[in-house]
């Protein structure tokens, strides 16, 4: 070749995540294609070739518009998580109805310490079966949705969302943990069953609500942030005796 050759090197700097690596990801530039694999064998663009006569210039960051619908939106996860969480909500409400009717708890009596183990059993059955799995799915879905939204150009203030998420999640989990760890002293201090069960349920709903909202915010923000980092590309001009061109590097 007599003229300067144009080389476009696309380097996959790192896989975005295990889940993403396992998921087919057609965009951009067909990163999972054999061609992409070949290019990954080339030296990283930001590690200049020994032949390079031009020192690495400052990186140029750009956003690349993505083809619509190229990312998984997390819709299935969100629906599944919502359904499971809905079951959890219904189960908890059913438990409260049971406590206030068929269990024949005398409202004005002191809380019975004997029932602590059963309270823990019935509430945690519901929590583990429905709320826990629901939370996991919703969180995964929110993360994926954040990623997909960012990919399709719908950006939100992920830093703020992250802070809000951490605050809500920490507060919710903290309230749940503290109120459960201190439940026996709280119940002992309560003069009546009404007080003890109201405390139990109020802290649950507030704590769970904050935990879910916080986890969703945080996961969405993480999704957006990671997607943001994924679309960072570095375009580096390369000039060598045998070729001249641009090296394009980044995470996709």
């Amino acid at each position: 070749m007599s003229g300067p050759a144009l080389l476009l090197a696309v380097v996959l700097a790192a896989p975005a995540s295990a889940s993403e690596a396992s998921a087919p990801d057609p965009a951009p530039a067909a990163a999972d294609t054999p061609g992409a694999a070949e290019t990954s064998a080339t030296p990283p663009a930001d590690a200049p070739s020994p032949d390079s006569t031009t020192p690495d210039t400052s990186a140029t960051l750009r956003s690349i518009p993505a083809p619509p619908g190229a990312r998984k939106t997390g819709r299935g996860l969100l629906i599944a998580g919502g359904v499971l969480t809905g079951f959890g909500v219904l189960g908890r409400i059913a438990l409260e109805v049971y406590w206030s009717t068929a269990a024949q708890i005398v409202p004005g009596d002191p809380f019975g310490r004997w029932s602590v183990a059963n309270v823990a059993l019935v509430t945690n059955m519901n929590n583990v079966l429905f709320f826990g799995t629901g939370l996991g799915l919703l969180t995964a879905g929110a993360r994926r949705r954040g990623d997909a939204d960012a990919w399709s150009g719908r950006w939100r203030d992920h830093r703020r969302m992250r802070l809000v998420g951490i605050g809500l999640l920490g507060g919710g989990l903290g309230l749940l943990a503290l109120s459960r760890a201190l439940f026996i002293p709280i119940a002992d201090a309560c003069p009546t069953n009404v007080c003890a069960y109201t405390t139990l349920e109020t802290t649950f709903w507030i704590g769970a609500g904050a935990t879910f909202a916080g986890a969703a915010h945080l996961a969405y923000a993480v999704g957006q942030q990671r997607s943001g980092s994924n679309v960072r590309v570095r375009v580096t001009p390369n000039l060598a005796p045998t070729f001249a061109g641009l090296a394009l590097a980044g995470r996709f």
Partner: peptide
């Protein structure tokens, strides 16, 4: 007059 998972056990006319 007690409850346990999904059941109540009690002697009538407790109150």
């Amino acid at each position: 007059n007690r409850w346990y998972p999904f059941t109540h056990v009690g002697v009538p006319r407790y109150l």
